[in-house]
Design a protein around this nucleic acid. Structure first.
Length: 268
DNA sequence: GTGTCATGCGTAT
DNA sequence: TACGCCTGACACG
Protein backbone atom coordinates (compact mmCIF):
# COMPACT_ATOMS: atom_id res chain seq x y z
CA UNK A 1 0.00 0.00 0.00
CA UNK A 2 2.14 2.62 -1.44
CA UNK A 3 2.65 6.34 -1.19
CA UNK A 4 5.43 8.16 -3.03
CA UNK A 5 8.17 7.18 -0.59
CA UNK A 6 7.65 3.49 -1.47
CA UNK A 7 8.08 4.09 -5.19
CA UNK A 8 11.22 6.17 -4.75
CA UNK A 9 12.66 3.58 -2.43
CA UNK A 10 11.86 0.81 -4.90
CA UNK A 11 13.42 2.85 -7.70
CA UNK A 12 16.60 3.15 -5.65
CA UNK A 13 16.74 -0.53 -4.67
CA UNK A 14 15.81 -1.82 -8.12
CA UNK A 15 18.32 0.54 -9.75
CA UNK A 16 21.06 -1.03 -7.66
CA UNK A 17 20.12 -4.50 -8.93
CA UNK A 18 19.03 -3.91 -12.52
CA UNK A 19 20.39 -0.63 -13.94
CA UNK A 20 22.72 -1.37 -16.85
CA UNK A 21 21.77 -5.05 -16.84
CA UNK A 22 20.22 -7.22 -19.51
CA UNK A 23 17.02 -8.51 -17.92
CA UNK A 24 14.65 -11.37 -18.62
CA UNK A 25 10.92 -10.71 -18.28
CA UNK A 26 7.78 -12.84 -18.11
CA UNK A 27 4.20 -12.61 -16.91
CA UNK A 28 3.34 -15.77 -14.92
CA UNK A 29 -0.25 -14.52 -14.56
CA UNK A 30 -0.44 -13.96 -18.32
CA UNK A 31 -1.91 -10.47 -18.27
CA UNK A 32 1.34 -8.81 -19.36
CA UNK A 33 2.48 -11.46 -21.85
CA UNK A 34 2.84 -9.09 -24.77
CA UNK A 35 4.79 -6.45 -22.86
CA UNK A 36 6.99 -9.03 -21.18
CA UNK A 37 7.81 -10.60 -24.54
CA UNK A 38 8.76 -7.20 -25.90
CA UNK A 39 11.03 -6.30 -22.97
CA UNK A 40 12.65 -9.72 -22.56
CA UNK A 41 16.38 -9.52 -23.19
CA UNK A 42 16.53 -5.72 -23.24
CA UNK A 43 19.05 -3.63 -21.31
CA UNK A 44 17.81 -1.35 -18.52
CA UNK A 45 19.08 2.20 -19.08
CA UNK A 46 17.39 3.95 -16.14
CA UNK A 47 14.92 3.39 -13.31
CA UNK A 48 13.19 6.30 -11.65
CA UNK A 49 10.08 7.31 -9.71
CA UNK A 50 7.80 10.27 -10.27
CA UNK A 51 5.21 10.68 -7.54
CA UNK A 52 3.62 7.23 -7.20
CA UNK A 53 4.77 6.07 -10.65
CA UNK A 54 7.81 3.89 -11.38
CA UNK A 55 9.45 4.11 -14.79
CA UNK A 56 12.02 1.82 -16.42
CA UNK A 57 13.72 3.19 -19.52
CA UNK A 58 15.38 0.58 -21.75
CA UNK A 59 18.18 1.14 -24.27
CA UNK A 60 15.61 0.75 -27.06
CA UNK A 61 13.75 3.77 -25.62
CA UNK A 62 10.87 1.51 -24.67
CA UNK A 63 9.55 2.56 -21.26
CA UNK A 64 7.89 0.36 -18.65
CA UNK A 65 5.34 2.25 -16.57
CA UNK A 66 4.16 0.80 -13.27
CA UNK A 67 1.55 2.21 -10.90
CA UNK A 68 0.76 0.10 -7.85
CA UNK A 69 -2.68 1.50 -7.12
CA UNK A 70 -4.13 0.45 -3.80
CA UNK A 71 -3.07 -3.20 -3.89
CA UNK A 72 0.08 -3.44 -5.92
CA UNK A 73 3.22 -4.88 -4.38
CA UNK A 74 6.87 -5.36 -5.31
CA UNK A 75 8.97 -8.17 -3.97
CA UNK A 76 12.68 -7.91 -4.60
CA UNK A 77 14.59 -11.16 -4.10
CA UNK A 78 18.08 -12.60 -4.43
CA UNK A 79 18.49 -15.71 -6.57
CA UNK A 80 17.51 -18.41 -6.03
CA UNK A 81 14.14 -16.73 -5.52
CA UNK A 82 10.96 -18.46 -4.27
CA UNK A 83 8.12 -19.16 -6.71
CA UNK A 84 6.16 -16.02 -7.53
CA UNK A 85 2.49 -15.80 -6.58
CA UNK A 86 0.10 -17.07 -9.31
CA UNK A 87 -1.06 -13.46 -9.55
CA UNK A 88 2.42 -12.23 -10.42
CA UNK A 89 1.89 -9.78 -13.30
CA UNK A 90 5.54 -9.15 -14.04
CA UNK A 91 8.58 -11.26 -13.30
CA UNK A 92 11.88 -9.53 -14.09
CA UNK A 93 15.18 -11.20 -13.39
CA UNK A 94 18.91 -11.57 -13.86
CA UNK A 95 21.21 -14.38 -12.74
CA UNK A 96 21.50 -12.75 -9.32
CA UNK A 97 18.23 -10.93 -8.63
CA UNK A 98 14.52 -11.19 -9.21
CA UNK A 99 11.59 -8.79 -9.05
CA UNK A 100 7.96 -9.88 -8.58
CA UNK A 101 5.15 -7.43 -9.23
CA UNK A 102 1.57 -8.28 -8.24
CA UNK A 103 -1.68 -6.33 -8.29
CA UNK A 104 -0.65 -3.12 -10.05
CA UNK A 105 -3.18 -0.71 -11.50
CA UNK A 106 -0.79 -0.12 -14.39
CA UNK A 107 1.97 -2.25 -15.89
CA UNK A 108 2.45 -1.20 -19.48
CA UNK A 109 5.01 -0.38 -22.15
CA UNK A 110 4.87 3.29 -23.16
CA UNK A 111 6.75 5.44 -25.65
CA UNK A 112 8.72 8.51 -24.54
CA UNK A 113 5.88 10.89 -25.48
CA UNK A 114 3.47 9.14 -23.15
CA UNK A 115 5.99 9.37 -20.32
CA UNK A 116 6.36 13.10 -20.93
CA UNK A 117 2.58 13.49 -20.84
CA UNK A 118 2.42 11.57 -17.57
CA UNK A 119 5.06 13.78 -16.02
CA UNK A 120 3.36 16.94 -17.29
CA UNK A 121 0.11 16.19 -15.53
CA UNK A 122 1.69 15.60 -12.13
CA UNK A 123 2.29 18.30 -9.53
CA UNK A 124 5.69 18.78 -7.90
CA UNK A 125 7.16 15.72 -6.18
CA UNK A 126 8.59 16.54 -2.74
CA UNK A 127 11.13 13.70 -2.87
CA UNK A 128 12.56 15.10 -6.10
CA UNK A 129 12.85 18.50 -4.38
CA UNK A 130 12.42 20.66 -7.50
CA UNK A 131 13.68 24.22 -6.96
CA UNK A 132 10.27 25.66 -7.86
CA UNK A 133 8.32 22.98 -5.97
CA UNK A 134 6.98 25.21 -3.19
CA UNK A 135 5.83 27.82 -5.71
CA UNK A 136 4.11 25.32 -7.97
CA UNK A 137 2.40 23.69 -4.99
CA UNK A 138 1.19 27.07 -3.70
CA UNK A 139 -0.01 28.13 -7.15
CA UNK A 140 -2.04 24.96 -7.64
CA UNK A 141 -3.56 25.20 -4.16
CA UNK A 142 -4.53 28.85 -4.59
CA UNK A 143 -6.92 27.98 -7.42
CA UNK A 144 -8.87 25.40 -5.43
CA UNK A 145 -11.90 25.90 -3.24
CA UNK A 146 -11.87 22.23 -2.24
CA UNK A 147 -10.89 21.26 1.33
CA UNK A 148 -7.16 21.05 1.94
CA UNK A 149 -7.69 17.43 2.99
CA UNK A 150 -8.93 16.67 -0.50
CA UNK A 151 -6.36 18.79 -2.35
CA UNK A 152 -3.43 16.95 -0.76
CA UNK A 153 -4.52 13.71 -2.45
CA UNK A 154 -4.79 15.37 -5.86
CA UNK A 155 -1.63 14.31 -7.69
CA UNK A 156 -1.83 17.43 -9.90
CA UNK A 157 -1.39 19.57 -6.76
CA UNK A 158 1.43 17.58 -5.16
CA UNK A 159 2.67 14.20 -6.41
CA UNK A 160 3.27 11.34 -4.03
CA UNK A 161 1.10 12.02 -0.98
CA UNK A 162 -1.46 9.39 0.03
CA UNK A 163 -3.98 8.94 2.79
CA UNK A 164 -1.45 8.43 5.59
CA UNK A 165 0.72 11.43 4.81
CA UNK A 166 -2.22 13.77 4.27
CA UNK A 167 -3.68 13.00 7.69
CA UNK A 168 -0.31 13.19 9.46
CA UNK A 169 0.92 16.37 7.75
CA UNK A 170 -2.31 18.20 8.58
CA UNK A 171 -2.02 17.05 12.19
CA UNK A 172 1.61 18.12 12.48
CA UNK A 173 0.74 21.61 11.23
CA UNK A 174 -2.50 21.95 13.18
CA UNK A 175 -4.65 22.36 10.09
CA UNK A 176 -8.25 21.14 10.07
CA UNK A 177 -8.80 18.95 6.98
CA UNK A 178 -11.93 20.82 5.89
CA UNK A 179 -10.30 24.25 5.66
CA UNK A 180 -10.72 25.39 2.03
CA UNK A 181 -7.40 25.22 0.20
CA UNK A 182 -7.53 28.91 -0.71
CA UNK A 183 -7.84 29.84 2.94
CA UNK A 184 -4.75 27.99 4.09
CA UNK A 185 -2.33 30.75 5.09
CA UNK A 186 0.79 31.38 3.02
CA UNK A 187 3.13 30.33 5.82
CA UNK A 188 1.12 27.13 6.28
CA UNK A 189 1.36 26.35 2.57
CA UNK A 190 5.13 26.79 2.76
CA UNK A 191 5.23 24.61 5.86
CA UNK A 192 3.14 21.91 4.15
CA UNK A 193 5.63 21.74 1.29
CA UNK A 194 8.69 21.80 3.53
CA UNK A 195 7.28 19.15 5.85
CA UNK A 196 6.26 16.97 2.89
CA UNK A 197 9.87 17.02 1.75
CA UNK A 198 11.15 16.14 5.22
CA UNK A 199 8.65 13.37 5.93
CA UNK A 200 8.71 11.69 2.51
CA UNK A 201 12.49 11.76 2.29
CA UNK A 202 12.60 10.19 5.74
CA UNK A 203 9.94 7.65 4.74
CA UNK A 204 11.97 6.72 1.66
CA UNK A 205 15.09 6.26 3.77
CA UNK A 206 13.40 4.25 6.52
CA UNK A 207 11.04 2.28 4.29
CA UNK A 208 8.10 3.16 6.53
CA UNK A 209 6.04 6.12 7.62
CA UNK A 210 6.89 7.38 11.11
CA UNK A 211 5.69 10.87 11.94
CA UNK A 212 5.50 10.72 15.75
CA UNK A 213 8.04 12.76 17.67
CA UNK A 214 9.35 10.18 20.17
CA UNK A 215 9.45 12.88 22.87
CA UNK A 216 5.63 12.92 22.79
CA UNK A 217 5.71 9.32 24.05
CA UNK A 218 8.61 9.82 26.44
CA UNK A 219 11.20 8.22 24.15
CA UNK A 220 14.33 9.60 22.63
CA UNK A 221 14.40 7.98 19.18
CA UNK A 222 11.97 7.09 16.45
CA UNK A 223 13.43 3.58 16.45
CA UNK A 224 12.11 3.11 19.98
CA UNK A 225 8.52 3.52 18.85
CA UNK A 226 6.56 0.27 18.77
CA UNK A 227 3.99 -0.99 16.34
CA UNK A 228 0.97 1.24 16.51
CA UNK A 229 2.98 4.15 17.88
CA UNK A 230 4.29 5.56 14.63
CA UNK A 231 1.40 7.80 13.60
CA UNK A 232 -0.54 10.57 15.34
CA UNK A 233 -4.02 10.32 13.88
CA UNK A 234 -4.19 7.89 10.94
CA UNK A 235 -6.74 5.17 11.78
CA UNK A 236 -6.94 6.38 15.39
CA UNK A 237 -10.68 7.08 15.45
CA UNK A 238 -12.04 7.32 19.02
CA UNK A 239 -8.59 7.04 20.54
CA UNK A 240 -6.85 9.80 22.52
CA UNK A 241 -4.64 12.29 20.70
CA UNK A 242 -0.99 11.52 21.45
CA UNK A 243 -0.36 15.22 22.13
CA UNK A 244 -3.39 16.44 24.08
CA UNK A 245 -5.59 13.44 24.88
CA UNK A 246 -8.64 14.74 23.02
CA UNK A 247 -10.55 12.00 21.19
CA UNK A 248 -9.50 11.68 17.55
CA UNK A 249 -12.38 11.95 15.10
CA UNK A 250 -12.90 10.70 11.54
CA UNK A 251 -14.85 11.65 8.45
CA UNK A 252 -15.17 10.64 4.85
CA UNK A 253 -13.85 12.88 2.08
CA UNK A 254 -14.71 11.48 -1.35
CA UNK A 255 -14.75 7.92 -0.12
CA UNK A 256 -11.42 8.12 1.70
CA UNK A 257 -11.27 8.26 5.49
CA UNK A 258 -9.53 11.13 7.20
CA UNK A 259 -8.72 11.42 10.89
CA UNK A 260 -7.87 14.50 12.96
CA UNK A 261 -7.65 15.88 16.48
CA UNK A 262 -10.36 18.51 17.01
CA UNK A 263 -8.21 20.33 19.60
CA UNK A 264 -4.86 20.32 17.81
CA UNK A 265 -6.57 21.03 14.45
CA UNK A 266 -9.40 23.43 15.31
CA UNK A 267 -12.07 24.55 12.86
CA UNK A 268 -11.77 28.12 11.66
C1' DG B 1 -13.15 -21.00 4.78
C1' DT B 2 -15.48 -16.46 4.37
C1' DG B 3 -15.78 -11.63 4.72
C1' DT B 4 -13.80 -7.21 5.15
C1' DC B 5 -10.76 -3.77 4.44
C1' DA B 6 -6.79 -1.11 2.49
C1' DT B 7 -1.17 3.95 2.10
C1' DG B 8 -5.38 4.60 -5.57
C1' DC B 9 -7.29 6.17 -9.52
C1' DG B 10 -9.93 6.30 -13.94
C1' DT B 11 -14.38 6.49 -15.99
C1' DA B 12 -19.27 6.84 -16.14
C1' DT B 13 -23.44 9.13 -14.27
C1' DT C 1 -21.01 10.74 -6.44
C1' DA C 2 -20.74 5.74 -7.64
C1' DC C 3 -18.54 1.95 -9.46
C1' DG C 4 -14.97 -1.03 -11.23
C1' DC C 5 -10.42 -2.82 -11.02
C1' DC C 6 -6.47 -5.12 -8.75
C1' DT C 7 -4.36 -8.56 -4.37
C1' DG C 8 -3.40 -10.02 0.17
C1' DA C 9 -3.61 -9.63 5.24
C1' DC C 10 -6.24 -10.19 8.98
C1' DA C 11 -10.49 -10.94 11.85
C1' DC C 12 -13.79 -14.06 12.65
C1' DG C 13 -16.06 -18.53 12.70
Amino acid sequence: MPEGHVLHRQARLQRRRFAGEVVRTASPQGRFDEGAARLDGQTVAEIRAIGKHLIYRFDSDDHLHIHLGLFGKFRLRRQPAPEPSPNCRLLLWTDTDELHLAGPTACEVLDPGAIDALEARLGPDPIARPADGAERFAARLATRSIPIGKALLDQKVIAGLGNVYRAELLFLLGIHPFVPSKEVLAHEVDALWDLSVIELVEGERAGKIVTVDPADLGRTRRSELGRGEKLYVYKRHNRPCRRCGTTVVAADIDGRNIWWCPSCQPER
